[in-house]
Design a protein around this nucleic acid. Structure first.
Lengths: 348, 348
DNA sequence: AGACTTCGTGCAAACGTTTGTGATGAGAAT
DNA sequence: ATTCTCATCACAAACGTTTGCACGAAGTCT
């Protein structure tokens, strides 16, 4: 009695009936007398019986658990994704196992192994930066375990993905600056080796082209690390060069913050002289001075969508493996780019 | 062959030997001929055999999974805790199941049920704000499942806790202001019904007492919501009242931010005229202007400690159920309170 | 009274793994 | 030749649950 949680066996023994009867009584199967049914249910209630999910998993060959591999849990964006996954999973009666790869290939591979060993019903993975060898992921699809990628696109893998439209986000941001009256827009770009950064550059140039504005190579400055200081220096140089600049689209919010600093240092007004917009819509955007416009990425929604996709796969709804669900970003206008002074819906 | 992952049975069948032999061969048990051992291992390797953790859990009556209940994943502090838990758990070969309660009692109870059903080996819980009825937690201890509370203290429950020393953190913050030369320190307090807020008020008053400074009731202003706007208004009033104030200790960083705004608005200099320090050391502290001093809470460490405690319980190391592990906070000095201009170690 | 349904229940197998015990054979010791 | 000792393996049970099948008793129909 004192050891662990109550099982069907315990109930059966106490009532001098068989396990099968208890099982059927609990699930209101036909063919059980009302008396037995009542007795079983009362005892189950009294002892706080909870079905053993482990035993069920073994029998049903499905665990009702989905595994998540994510670079880190501590970044705002990632934590919103996790939140979305968790909410959606709970709604479907699933539990979530989370492993962080910390951008390490080895840890990613180990985590996949652990989750496969746990026989998760599906795998949601945001691949680590370090990962180029895809063998460990290949095994997953070979063994028939549903997998969905999110956030970072993985090419050459037979699994659906849900990502954010970086191209369009950048496009929208730049178009917003143009609408605010900016004529000479610089771009503090991300490292060129990341797809994500290239997509944003493309969005930037397309927006300029579509508005018949010239694309100047020297207006695109690469900021490799994406730190505030780096961007501040880059902006310092841009301003010092004497180029006429009245708008800045930064590849990320930290860089935008660096730009803000530099511009203020130069004695210019934001957004009147130079409007600034960042990317990611981190929490601090609304807290800095001036508050920072940014492009918000739908992390929560991404988590939910990835979850929905994996459920479809698990339930064998025939789903095109090459599906790529692209989620829309949203330009959140705050002081740093609001030259026209149009009132915006509360963005915080 | 095509269905799911390979099992010991599959290997046994292919080699025409029994499951037990395969099992023993894989684990290098004595009494297995080198030939058999080799054949088994090769096949296991070829088919990428992974032990079925579900079956193992059932047999061993332990899942190697710990469950975590946390209000939300999206807050910086919580996400650092999760990170700590995950790292420590992985180190011990455990997986982590996370459920967010979203501060809802009902969802907390449901999550506990789900995790108990999953037969987690231990439960790490940060109780929701809404929870006052502890019956669902009581059941957990009655059924002998190890449980450890973290972050928020739960009284009257027979389980260890790991928390942060709110009293000392507040004390240190105020003492820091005093060391910087502040004589008249106001406190933007949290809601009086939360233990956490009361502890900080105590720390505030004790620091003043120990430095033989008077405690003025009207220098403690309650900010119920903890929002920036609320704190800004409160600070406005304090300044308008004509009271001499040269230091502010805010119950949280948002409130501190409101104070900063108000003080700047009044044309006063920070920290020269008024020094400000917040609480929690959120990410944005180093990004605002002036950068905000704060009291950092060791979330990551808290996660690790909670994990270590639960492992001790799981392994029946006799551990005093009433253990309360109290973690130290740390004052992170930035511009908003650095009147003396002493160089501090990089706090970002 | 026999055959046939109906009701309530029990048996056994299965999911994958481990492990105590028992079986088989070969070779060594008597 | 008989017994004994290893070495090598197989069997079966157990973990908790579900479910197809069978079984006995009672009732219903001819």
């Amino acid at each position: 009695m004192k050891k662990g949680q109550v099982t069907i066996k315990d109930i059966a023994k106490e009532l001098n009936i068989s396990c099968s009867t208890v099982s059927r009584a609990l699930k209101d199967f036909p063919g059980i007398s009302p008396n037995t049914r009542k007795a079983v249910k009362e005892l189950a209630d009294k002892y706080n019986y909870r079905p053993n999910a482990v035993a069920l998993s073994l029998r049903n060959q499905r665990t009702n658990v989905i595994g998540v591999i994510i670079p880190e849990t501590v970044h705002f964006f990632f934590s919103t994704v996790i939140s979305g996954i968790e909410d959606e999973a709970m709604k479907e009666g699933y539990n979530v196992m989370i492993c962080q790869s910390i951008e390490s290939f080895e840890r990613e591979a180990d985590s996949i192994d652990a989750l496969m060993s746990a026989r998760v019903d599906g795998l949601l993975v945001d691949i680590s930066r370090e990962t180029s060898d895809l063998a460990h992921l290949q095994k997953v699809v070979e063994e028939g375990v549903p997998m969905v990628f999110f956030d970072r696109l993985v090419e050459g893998m037979n699994a659906p993905s849900v990502i954010v439209d970086d191209y369009q986000g950048a496009y929208d941001a730049v178009e917003h600056l143009i609408q605010q009256g900016c004529k000479d827009i610089a771009h503090l770009a991300g490292p060129g080796n990341l797809i994500i950064g290239r997509k944003r550059i493309e969005g930037y140039t397309s927006a300029l082209e579509d508005n018949e504005m010239p694309i100047k190579k020297d207006f695109i400055v690469e900021c490799r690390n994406g730190t505030q200081e780096e961007a501040e220096q880059a902006m310092d140089q841009l301003l010092a060069s004497g180029k006429k600049i009245d708008g800045v689209f930064a590849n990320n919010d930290m860089a935008a913050l660096g730009a803000l600093k530099s511009i203020k240092k130069a004695g210019l007004k934001i957004p009147e002289d130079i409007a600034v917009i960042g990317y990611s819509d981190w929490q601090f955007c609304s807290l800095v001075n001036p508050s920072l416009s940014s492009v918000s990425q739908p992390g929560y929604e991404m988590g939910k969508e990835a979850c929905k996709l994996i459920f479809k796969e698990i339930n064998k709804t025939n789903i095109e493996k090459s599906t790529i669900k692209i989620l829309d970003t949203e330009v959140v206008v705050r002081e740093s780019s609001n030259k026209l002074g149009v009132i915006q819906p509360l963005a915080n």
